[in-house]
Design a protein around this nucleic acid. Structure first.
Lengths: 194, 194, 194, 194
DNA sequence: AATGAATGAGGTTTCATTCAT
DNA sequence: TATGAATGAAACCTCATTCAT
């Protein structure tokens, strides 16, 4: 049984998300995470190499689930427009359903140093690939413009989603994020088609 | 003569940008900034209340210029599409021309604590207003769709620009950012029109 | 087992007394106390909230003992005059026996800021109560004048003792403090009786 | 004309008393004293060698007056008891009339380092001599006990006065200090006579 | 495997003093 | 004489990580 399957591994990951969301990145000390997880400080270091490893693991585990679910849902769709709409909807609904996770990924983890953010970007590459595949699928099916630059399209899609969720988090989640799925995917679709 | 007009004020601001860009946010000690500016550590505190004040001032001064120049350039344009194209072009060319500033605003200052980021967001509101005015202008002139949600459109525009510049910085400025101005503004325009 | 019962707690208290007595209040850096106690700087902060807390604790612990011993000894006496004589004798002999403590309480801790001195005064209130009880006891037994103002009498007693010890400390303990116990208590007694 | 007779010298002395009384010893920066005196920081150093010199001068000038007035008043008395009563009364009334001075001498200047307090004690020696002369006068006139140890008597007198004024200052001058002159001198007299 | 007491490096800020004008 | 901008040394405290138990 790998170390990641033992109960305390997940306990620490969950504790880290909550502690960071509630206290902010700079107030999320290892000892605080340990106390929340109900383990000793030293135990953390049996499961994680160092603090950086905790943060990266939080992102990898949580974003892994996040991406897998989006992938699975997109696969059920045939039409390019539906795939894009599904992507947007899943992106928003998942983060709306897990506010602490949204706070951690949109606000707090971005305060980490360059080393951590570099590792985080590695994980994001999987998501980038999903977006790119949706764009390419649309181009192949002649729904999106064929001279569309995939990278630019992806930056527009990801940038728009990211900026929207960030606004939602920074406004203390006061508006209904899920409700924005439709107008946002319409807006993006309008930019990609023809 | 206000304190901000004395030569050392600007000297320290410029030194801060360079030191942060070259060493990273967390390695930008006050003593390093002072040495780069050619002043004593204590002199910093004649011009700035504390370290936080230096960082906020860097952003305010630099983004102030940045926004003013974009505003001025946009005003010379009549057509909504040209205004948007100008916004995108100015955003990219200014940051491409001041790489250290781009590194500081896109990467390093985002690692600051919530207090600093809150103050930074205050300055960004001026830029938000500029983007909103371009969107509204386009709607009023029946070039952009009239049922377009201004906030969503702005999030798409800003999100796309920000994501693109961040990609450029994180890729060590290996591609020509300014050259992306035209395809990106075309892409955005396509999303906003009709 | 409380944190104050762990050996390092007392080790740090003792180190603080010695370092302050030998170096003076303003030259008693935390790192110097830590080195003298044989612990790391950070260890200090496991046992004490901050530097102020060390100083207050030194006074509370040491004066606590000081007062308890005087109290116990006074209780063994029946005659008011003997109680006063015991108070004076114990005050002088204890401080004469612990010169570093005398230096710290008479000279060095008085250089602390108002917050610390306020906390120190809290501890002194216990001593004030002991003196007051001796005065009241003498009045009740018709040995001290019955119209004697307890507060004034206490100020005379404490002021005289304190001034005498301060003189002894400032004269580098060149005279025999303990030998002054008898003449001083005679002098005070003369002022209080009839 | 000596430097001490020029108007700014006294201006700075008065400013120092007020600034220390109002802000506390540790918050009485040279720049604050300069601003209060209406002079530039650098001007302070034309009149005083350094900050220590300001503090010592404050004490010397103010206590000089204080002692001179007590001396003069005592000389008008013939009887030993009256001389002592006058000493006590003048001590209390002068400090009661100059609260800022009382705060500075009783509370704030005692927070200074040993070097300053040593110099302050030099000035106090003049006062010590005055008290001693009163004690000796009483002994010579067979009013005070002849075997009275002058130093002990002086420590009792000064300690009692000092402790009483300190209590008054620390209780925010809530009671009438001058009114204590009579009972305190009676108490002291009782201790010295017979 | 689990604990938690102990470690120690590192940086922001204050303020007395100087000196060119 | 007077100014006030500039200097620069010095210390408290935090917290990620270790290791004896």
């Amino acid at each position: 049984m790998g170390i990641k399957d033992r109960p305390k591994y997940r306990l620490i990951i969950e504790a880290a998300v909550d502690v960071i969301a509630e206290n902010g990145f700079h107030q999320a000390q290892v000892s605080k995470i340990a106390k929340r997880a109900g383990v000793a400080d030293g135990t953390i270091y049996i499961y994680f190499k160092n603090k950086e490893d905790i943060l990266i693991s939080v992102f990898r585990e949580k974003m892994g689930d996040f991406i897998e679910k989006i992938k699975a849902e997109i696969m059920t769709q045939e039409k390019p427009g539906e795939k894009l709409a599904t992507l947007v909807r899943m992106h928003f609904t998942q983060l709306a359903a897990h506010r602490n996770l949204a706070i951690v990924t949109q606000l707090e983890l971005r305060q980490s140093n360059q080393a951590i953010r570099h590792k985080i970007n590695e994980t994001l590459k999987d998501y980038i690939a999903v977006i790119d595949s949706v764009v390419d699928y649309g181009k192949e099916h002649h729904i999106f413009r064929e001279n569309l630059d995939t990278r630019l399209a992806r930056q527009m899609i990801f940038g728009t989603l990211d900026e929207t969720v960030s606004n939602w988090v920074m406004n203390d989640q006061r508006f209904d994020l899920a409700a924005l799925a439709e107008p946002v995917s319409d807006l993006l679709l309008n930019g990609l088609t023809r």
